[in-house]
């Protein structure tokens, strides 16, 4: 039918418009980081001086290292603890299990503004204070529910008979877990780890409330710089961040299909 054709054509066009809406600002921001004019003036003249000047900005570099370190440690801790918890939730039946699973929801659903300010108050009250350690505590807690949800989704595709078979062949609990279960859920564990890295590396709100002038992460540093005024240097560092986090998500998508299908 002709109308169907036209409607489908409009639909396709619409999707491309949506993609333009989603990507154009990011592309423009990236382009401006290569533009000579410090006031973002056109015509466009190519330069990499803003990237070069990033190297001289010690504050930014130290914040970048903090971000990377915290993201890596967060990934390791939350992947290990989260996978363990997923296994326990998968293998065992007990009263209150539903409640424990429901408890994973608030950290994801409650606005970070509330979680972040609550952490600030509590950490201050118990003497942990602010700083990188507090930020790490917070990031792991934010990443854990994502890891557990993703690994649990993968575990749903696992046949428990495999564990039974290994056990009846004489494997002990550790062997069953490390040789049978873990290899099977590995794609889920990797995806969970990548999610955890992304949650930590892109996290702004919680880090913002928990950071101190010397101990900050990259997004917090960028926010401070934005509020002082826009400079092409911010564009440059922002471009790096967005490229890194998008590359990470592409990796995640490769190891874990969204929607849970295999």
């Amino acid at each position: 039918m002709a109308t169907t054709r036209i409607l489908e054509w409009c639909g396709r066009l619409y999707i491309w418009l949506l993609l333009a809406f989603l990507y154009l600002p990011i592309i423009i921001m990236a382009l401006m980081s290569f533009n000579v004019s410090p006031f973002y003036q056109l015509p466009f003249e190519w330069t990499t001086e803003w990237y070069a000047s990033l190297w001289l900005n010690d504050q930014l570099i130290s914040a970048t290292w903090n971000s990377i370190e915290i993201a890596i440690i967060t990934t390791v801790i939350s992947t290990v603890l989260g996978s363990a918890a997923s296994l326990a939730l998968y293998r065992h039946e007990f009263r209150g299990k539903k409640a424990l699973q429901a408890l994973l929801f608030p950290p994801i659903a409650i606005p970070w503004l509330i979680t972040g300010t609550a952490m600030l108050i509590f950490f201050f009250g118990v003497g942990i204070g602010r700083g990188l350690f507090a930020i790490l505590l917070g990031h792991v807690a934010l990443a854990l529910p994502y890891v557990i949800v993703v690994v649990s989704a993968r575990l749903q595709t696992f046949a428990p008979e495999l564990e039974e078979a290994a056990r009846s062949l004489g494997a002990n609990q550790w062997q069953v877990t490390s040789r049978v279960t873990l290899p099977w859920i590995m794609p889920g564990v990797i995806a969970g780890g990548l999610f955890a890295f992304a949650v930590s590396f892109d996290q702004f709100v919680v880090s913002y409330f928990l950071s101190t002038p010397g101990q900050t992460t990259l997004p917090v540093e960028i926010y401070a710089a934005i509020r002082k005024g826009f400079t092409p240097e911010i564009n440059a560092v922002s471009t790096i961040i967005i490229v890194v986090s998008m590359a990470l998500m592409l990796l995640t998508a490769r190891s874990f299909k969204f929607g849970g299908e295999k």
């Binding site: 600002p25 990011i26 921001m29 826009f230 961040i241 967005i242 986090s245 998008m246």
Partner: peptide, 15 residues
């Protein structure tokens, strides 16, 4: 984009 840095995406609109 949803999984990329939210702060940076907001900043990009300023451009």
């Amino acid at each position: 984009p949803f999984w990329s840095n939210g702060l940076v995406r907001i900043f990009s609109w300023a451009m």
